[in-house]
Structures are given as C-alpha cells and as structure tokens.
Computed example of a mutant assay.
Amino acid sequence: MPKPFTPKVITANALLEGDVIYQTATGWTRSLAEAEVLTDEADADLRMIDALTQHELVVGVYLADVAPEAGGPKPTHFREEFRAKGPSNYAHGKQETL
C-alpha cells in the first residue's frame, strides 16, 4: 500500500552561490517561511518537473517533508532543519540572525 502524500516543499541549491533555496509560487527564495507548501501529489509532480528544467538556476532539486504552520512551513526531518539554518562551519549568512 502506498504511503499517503504529506505536505512538502521543493528545495534545491542555487547553482552559482550554493545556498539552500525553496520554490515559491513565483520563483525561488532563500527563506523556508516563504516556500510554497504543496499538499496535492499531482501538483507536486508537475512543480517538480518545472523545477528540474531550471538547470541555469538550481541543482539537486527534491521534495522535502514539512509541517504547515502559521509562521510558514517547518521541517519534519533533521536534515531539512539543518539545511534551513545554513552552513555549519561558522556563524555567517542565515546563522547570524538565529
């Protein structure tokens, strides 16, 4: 029996900078809070096809599980929580504001 579809966001890395980015309804953002939450599997499949064609902007595109919340989606897996915080080698970028 297939697993039920859970809410997801499309995530990748920016091709030139390497930053973690998330797909919105109109493009890409570096903020998980601004990411578009996908709740329909067919819609998620179509959005993935579109994201995978954007070779000039992104690499490593995939769907990540999230929990929709009032302040924006929250990661449900440690890996995504870690990626959302930015590089781990020292406090810079997103980590400066945490």
Rank of each mutant, 00 (worst) to 15 (best):
R79P: 00
A44E: 01
A25E: 14
P7H: 14
V58H: 07
G18C: 07
A51P: 00
I10P: 00
G60F: 08
E17G: 02
T26C: 05
Y22T: 04
T97L: 13
K94H: 08
V66T: 08
L98E: 09
E81L: 11
T26V: 15
T97H: 14
T6K: 15
Y90N: 13
I10F: 02
Q95H: 10
D50K: 15
G86R: 03
P4S: 07
K8P: 00
V9C: 04
R83C: 01
P4T: 10
S31G: 04
D50Q: 14
A67E: 13
K85H: 09
L16Y: 12
N89Y: 14
T29L: 03
D40C: 08
V20M: 06
L98Y: 02
A64Y: 00
S88L: 10
A70D: 09
A44P: 00
P68N: 12
K3G: 00
K94I: 11
L63H: 02
V61Y: 01
L57W: 09
A64C: 01
A91C: 10
T24V: 10
T76W: 04
A25G: 10
M48L: 15
I10D: 02
L46Y: 03
T76S: 02
R30D: 05
D45N: 12
L52T: 15
R47N: 06
E34W: 01
T97I: 13
F78P: 00
H77K: 12
L98Q: 06
G71Q: 15
A33F: 03
M1E: 06
P7Q: 12
G60S: 10
Q95E: 13
E34V: 01
K74G: 06
P2A: 12
H55L: 13
L15P: 07
M48Y: 02
E96F: 04
W28V: 04
L38R: 07
V9M: 05
L15H: 10
P75C: 03
E69M: 13
L15Y: 11
G27F: 01
S88T: 13
T26I: 14
T6W: 02
L38Y: 08
A70S: 12
R47D: 03
E34M: 10
L63Q: 07
Q23L: 08
G71D: 15
T39W: 03
H55E: 15
K74F: 03
I10Q: 05
T29F: 04
R30H: 10
P2G: 03
V58N: 03
E81F: 07
T26L: 10
D50G: 08
S88Q: 13
P73M: 04
N89G: 09
T11Q: 11
A42M: 03
A35R: 01
E80Q: 06
L57C: 06
K8R: 14
T11G: 09
G27H: 04
L15A: 12
L32V: 10
L46W: 06
V37H: 06
T26W: 07
E41N: 12
A35L: 11
K3T: 13
P2K: 13
V9G: 03
V9L: 04
P2Y: 05
R83S: 05
V61S: 04
W28M: 05
E34F: 08
W28D: 01
